[in-house]
Amino acid sequence: MVFQLRTKSPDEWKAVTSAISTLVDEATFEATVDGVSFRGMDPSHVALIDIFWPNSAFDRYECDKLIKFGVRIDEFSKLIKRAEKKDSIEIDITDDSMLQMKIFNGYKKEYKMRLIESISSSTPLPKLTFNSKIILSTTAFDRILSDVQVLSEYVTIETRPKNIRFLGKGDSGEADILLDSESEGLEELICNEESKSTYSIDYLLKIIKAVGGSGGAISAEYSSKMPLRLEFKVANIGRIHFYLAPRVQD
């Protein structure tokens, strides 16, 4: 078995682990010749994360066949956090089910961590077509959701060709936030068909706070009463997709 991953900095690993940690405690990564991927849902199956990290993004990537490795996310990210921004990180899997992490800095740090049993079943992706797409800066997205959260646990996103509204309704009142092409933070608005759908703010804010810091803008795509897909642009990582199932009224 040949398996070795090396990155120039811990940032990508940090983004990946903190994204995953918003949904699950244990994660099974899958590595192939092409790259490393993760896919998993939270226990209530409301959200799904789909990550693909291509081999080209690594400083060194050696993997000759499919390898699955399971980690406890909090333990794994504790080790990652011991690396500073400019440290390179190397990860190997040893034959005795241990993950070996080397952090290169002024001196060489080496950790070994026991792997956990990996999950064999794979999570399929929902089949979706998106009628609306918006791209918002992380800061704007975070702020808008926090604005709505003051009054409501859910946000209704209403996209029209010229503008987009974020609505919230709680026991004590209502929130209404309107953005158009002039608004700060709104980088793109595409509306093929008017779309209106409601999502849990808690899930959205958790993932945005976890990953947002590593990237610039977030793209959000959805259709009426269908799941929302967030795409985080993180340098070097091919894909971080976050799917969130909508709330519907009877």
């Binding site: 199956h45 799904l48 399929p124 929902p126 799941p227 799917y243 199932a245 709330r247 009224q249 009877d250």
Partner: peptide, 14 residues
């Protein structure tokens, strides 16, 4: 109310 109105990703697998 919290759970009933919340759909699940698995309902959209097609």
């Amino acid at each position: 109310d919290l759970f009933k109105n919340q759909t699940r990703i698995t309902e959209f697998l097609g």
